[in-house]
């Protein structure tokens, strides 16, 4: 595992730990932690705090009878076989949580122009998350954001005004950053990108078309 330079900010790890992030950001956090022990340690630290708070909560004693009955039901089930659940594992450049979002299948790329392709993994009213494929040396159009955008590199690299991003790195862009990422010249750049608002492209696609392309 090569050391990463660009990690998930602490408050987002905490927000993930307590269950306060939209689906798309949660996917980027889970994908990065799959390959970054530094952030894994920070997540597990947040869970230590969560555990200490859980321990110190006043137990709900009004329901003692209910818990006794529930304990009996659980004890009776201990020897039952665990229900089958799909298990996803890493496949090539895609960490297990990305494979889960892909339902275990390879991505189905849709062209966006200029050789750029995307696969939308999830889109709801809290935002969206997609895979982006950018040919070597190709620029992603200038864009700024209404909200927060997290982009993790899965293959290749990209660079912009803020620095260089290699496999495993995560760029955090908020509404104030207007940037023009350019893919590195090696392998095509494949990224996992999540936003909590539609991207605003300054050229490349008229804003009216954005809902059509869901970009």
């Amino acid at each position: 595992m090569s050391p990463m330079i660009h990690h998930i900010p602490e408050h987002l790890i905490r927000a993930y730990a307590v269950g306060g992030l939209p689906q798309g950001f949660s996917l980027v956090v889970a994908a990065h932690i799959s390959v970054c022990d530094e952030c894994r340690a920070r997540l597990e630290t947040e869970e230590m705090a969560g555990g200490a708070i859980l321990e110190a909560l006043a137990p709900d004693t009004a329901t003692d009878g209910r818990d006794t009955a529930l304990l009996a039901a659980v004890m009776a089930e201990l020897d039952d076989p665990a229900p089958a659940e799909p298990v996803f594992v890493r496949s090539g450049i895609f960490p297990a949580p990305v494979m889960q979002a892909l339902d275990g299948r390879p991505p189905r790329w849709r062209p966006l122009g200029a050789g750029i392709r995307q696969t939308i993994l999830n889109s709801d009213r809290e935002g969206s998350v997609r895979l982006l494929f950018i040919p070597p040396g190709e620029a992603v159009p200038d864009h700024s954001h209404n909200g927060l955008e997290l982009t993790m590199v899965l293959q290749g690299s990209f660079h912009d005004e803020t620095g260089a991003f290699n496999v495993g790195d995560v760029e955090v862009a908020d509404g104030t950053l207007e940037h023009s990422p350019v893919a590195g010249t090696g392998a095509p750049c494949i990224c996992l990108a999540a936003t909590d608002a539609p991207l605003r492209f300054r050229r490349f696609l008229p804003r009216l078309l954005q809902p059509v392309f869901r970009i």
């Binding site: 909560l57 137990p59 709900d60 529930l70 201990l78």
Partner: peptide
């Protein structure tokens, strides 16, 4: 199993508070 029952008795009411 006894240790499991103790875990249940300790955590179930706290998880219940958390869910409430």
């Amino acid at each position: 199993r006894d240790a499991f029952a103790r875990l249940f008795e300790f955590y179930a009411p706290r998880i219940r508070t958390m869910l409430a």
